[in-house]
């Protein structure tokens, strides 16, 4: 499962699930990279504040369904072709993606 950690909590061996980019959107480090001390130090110097990493925790089918239900409940009164409808689509897509990360 994807997870977001503060740079201060980053430790060697964590796997990036999202590329690290600088202010201008330039990729400094690609997805899938395993962190090491020197990378972490460099990110700190570049004032990167958060990293997206693989948590190592599996999302169970049950948790997945629960999360999905929560989203659906929140958006009960929202039409799908509205701004908030688009957000719902985003969230469901993200949730699927999170689950996908498990299988890799």
């Amino acid at each position: 499962m994807k997870k977001c950690v503060s740079i201060n909590d980053a430790v060697e061996g964590m796997i990036l699930t999202k590329p690290v980019t600088n202010d201008k959107g330039m990729v400094l480090c690609s997805k899938g990279t395993s962190l090491n001390e020197s990378l972490i130090k460099r990110f700190k110097e570049m004032q990167i504040s958060v990293l997206y990493i693989e948590s190592g925790i599996e999302m169970t089918e049950e948790e997945f369904i629960q999360e999905k239900d929560k989203i659906k409940k929140r958006f009960l009164n929202i039409k799908s072709d509205s701004i908030l409808g688009k957000l719902k689509i985003s969230l469901l897509k993200n949730l699927e993606e999170q689950k996908e990360t498990n299988k890799e």
């Binding site: 929140r74 009164n77 701004i83 985003s90």
Partner: peptide
Amino acid sequence: PLEPIDPICEEKIPLTQDQIDKIAENIAP
């Protein structure tokens, strides 16, 4: 549950699905 947003926002803030994806991706973690 969310109430629908004021229709005027739909008209004046024409964010695309891609843009919403990007915003959500940015803030979710």
